Amino acid sequence: MQLLSMDDNKKIGLGLVILGLSCYLLGIILFFDRALFLIANLSFLIGMYMFIGLKQTIAFFSKKTNFKGSLVYFGGFAIIVFGFSFIGFCIQMYGLFLLFKTFLPLLYDPICRIPIIGKYFRSDAVKNTINNIAQKGPSV
């Protein structure tokens, strides 16, 4: 039985991305554990490579509109390597926001369908704010 007809590399890549996000969460719960953040970063990047391929991963991080987000993200990774987990994590989250903010409108509808918090996101003000953030381009 196939899972959504994805090939094995994409399944493994998606699993590694999910592992990376889980390690980020565990790293936060365990008081910004440096080792978990390093595992999270490596599995996230390897997962992206396996999910979309090396050429597309490099193209995504080196795209002109994503260049600032890439620098901030990898700068945060370097700060975590040198032992400042909390500061590096905060910088990395800002970098991830810069990299993936154009995907916010795609996440809006599924968030609105969540039973408890969805009603707070259904207002026009929240929808307009998300659209404005996504349309501003590489800088916030």
Rank of each mutant, 00 (worst) to 15 (best):
F60R: 06
V72R: 01
L107T: 10
L99P: 06
F60H: 08
K68G: 07
P105K: 09
G75A: 13
L99T: 12
K101L: 04
D109M: 08
S70Q: 12
S62L: 14
K101N: 08
I80L: 01
N128V: 11
L107V: 10
I114A: 08
L25D: 02
L45D: 08
T102L: 12
I28G: 02
K101D: 01
L42Q: 07
I116D: 01
T129M: 11
F82V: 14
Y73K: 09
V81S: 00
I58T: 13
F121E: 01
G53K: 03
F82S: 09
L26T: 12
I29S: 04
M48V: 07
G47K: 11
K64C: 03
I46P: 01
F44R: 09
K127D: 03
F51C: 00
P110S: 08
Y73Q: 05
I80P: 02
P110C: 06
A134S: 15
I130H: 05
T57A: 04
L42K: 07
C112N: 11
P105R: 09
M48A: 10
Y73W: 14
Y94H: 05
Q56L: 13
S123G: 12
K55F: 05
L54K: 13
L98N: 01
M48T: 08
L36W: 05
S62I: 08
S123K: 12
R34E: 03
